[in-house]
Amino acid sequence: MSERAPLLTLNGVNTHIGPYHILQGVDLEVPRGALTMLLGRNGAGKTTTLRTIMGLWHASAGSVRFDGADITAWATPDIARAGIAYVPENMGIFADLTVRENLLLAARSGPIDAARLRWIFGLFPALEKFWLLAAGVLSGGQKQMLSIARAIIEPRKLFLIDEPTKGLAPAIIANMIAAFHELKKSSDTTILVVEQNFLFAKSLGDAVAVMDNGRVVHAGAMTALVADRDLQQRLLGLSLDRNQ
């Protein structure tokens, strides 16, 4: 893991959604050039953390610093333009637009770079096959591939990816793991992934943070968590055994 200053730092972040107090003082550091897994049970606040980083929900207290800048009160488009790509839990693809149009829209700086597109087609061959189809007719796995491809169509400093394996068949998850390995190898970028599937998480993660009740209750190297079954049991409970 890198010894440089973290790319993203959350300090005491609180987020309210209507009357509900979801994040209750989140402290999190995302190291540069590493893949950090954000784990935790349902309702722990993982998705809210990503949405707060993106400015889709604003923090009511605390600060979010990205690459040296305080982005806590920034508008979502400005946060995206600062170099953060976001893949939401529901994938957020534009169903009426073709695969090509979805990617064109994500390439803000102009035409899609041909070499980058070939690299993406190498990761997700289905996208080349269905290039001109409306994204709404793709299968769930293909939509997930498209949503990730859209995030990586141009180089970004940080990728926020929310549950990329949710609802996917094991074969597709294996394909996704291979794609993430390739992504880690091929680009000097930082990735923060929210995940429930520990098998997936431990096969990819360099660092890990575990959330519970709107707080980060553990942070460290993934190898340490993988090696410590008691810690796994304490932090992630019985659901972990099923995933192993």
């Binding site: 993106m54 889709l56 979502t76 488009p77 995206a80 333009r81 957020g92 169903a95 803000r108």
Partner: peptide
């Protein structure tokens, strides 16, 4: 279709 995602794209 999805204004929030358009914003998230910048």
């Amino acid at each position: 279709e999805n204004g929030e995602m358009v914003e998230a794209l910048g």
